[in-house]
């Protein structure tokens, strides 16, 4: 029986080498978190809400240009720039290493979004609407955000709370990668990823896959890096660099 609250530090490892840019994580997140439909008009207004989004960027100089995909989500920075600027404490750091957003407190100054280096905070410019046929699809565990407030990736905190309740509270076991997976407590994007690009887990648990990947890759000369590391935001999401197979084998791609 786990009597005391276990100290978790949730985090993610994103292996870009595996990402195919299929957008399954985007759709899963959309469904799990009651995110309003991103119509074409909304995209044209540049107001789409995608807590995780797959961005394409170009690497290298012409003619050696390569298209790359990178899934971007809230980095849950340890030293988050968005937190100190909120006048009403609508965003703060919880003791599990997560940057959480309290929708009820938010007044919508949008200062946090301005100050977010990763541009992963989304403002509800319009009242969210769903077609009648999709009303029953809404997730009862997640608040539907009204217009005028900020929202962002929560690492599916509703699932993690349920995991704590079921695994730690009722069964009295420690949360491990296995029982997170078995109980469907992993974030929706991680569950949906067909290539296991996204790996989620507890950095405080040395047995977890993320801890081991961090140990293996997030070292000098390793593949691991954090986005905009030089800003000192200390993200809880680690990215693994793409392995350039041609660079390794020395095979010329342009014949």
């Amino acid at each position: 029986m786990v009597n005391e609250r276990v100290n978790h530090k949730w985090g993610m490892v994103v292996d870009i080498d595996r990402c195919t840019g299929c957008q399954a994580c985007v759709v899963a997140c959309q469904a799990e978190n009651n995110i309003p439909l991103n119509t074409e008009a909304i995209f044209r207004q540049r107001r789409a809400i995608e807590w995780i989004h797959v961005e394409r960027y170009w690497e290298g100089e012409f003619p050696d240009v390569k298209a790359r995909f990178i899934p971007i989500l809230c980095q849950h920075c340890e030293n988050a720039p968005c937190e100190p600027v909120c006048p009403v404490y609508a965003t703060y750091h919880n003791n599990q290493g997560m940057n959480v957003q309290v929708y009820n407190r938010c007044v919508g100054t949008r200062y946090c979004a301005n100050n977010c280096s990763y541009q992963v905070r989304f403002f509800n410019y319009w009242e969210p609407v769903w077609p009648e046929t999709l009303k029953n699809q809404l997730n009862p565990d997640v608040t539907v955000r009204s217009r005028g407030i900020m929202e962002k990736c929560s690492f599916d905190i509703q699932r993690l709370r349920k995991a704590e309740h079921v695994i730690e509270g009722q069964r009295g076991e420690r949360i491990t990668d296995e029982n997170l997976r078995e109980g469907n407590f992993l974030p929706a994007c991680v569950q949906a990823c067909p290539t296991t690009t996204l790996v989620f887990g507890d950095f405080n648990d040395p047995e977890s896959q993320v801890s081991q990947m961090k140990e293996e890759h997030f070292v000098e000369g390793g593949r691991g890096y954090k986005l905009l590391e030089d800003l000192g935001t200390e993200p809880n999401v680690i990215y693994l660099k793409k392995v350039d197979i041609h660079a390794k084998t020395g095979v010329e791609t342009h014949a």
């Binding site: 949008r110 403002f123 410019y125 005028g148």
Partner: peptide, 15 residues
């Protein structure tokens, strides 16, 4: 009444 959608603000330019 309508929300801030009626302004020209968008995701990078929130102010």
């Amino acid at each position: 009444n309508q929300g801030l959608g009626v302004t020209g603000l968008n995701r990078p330019v929130m102010w």
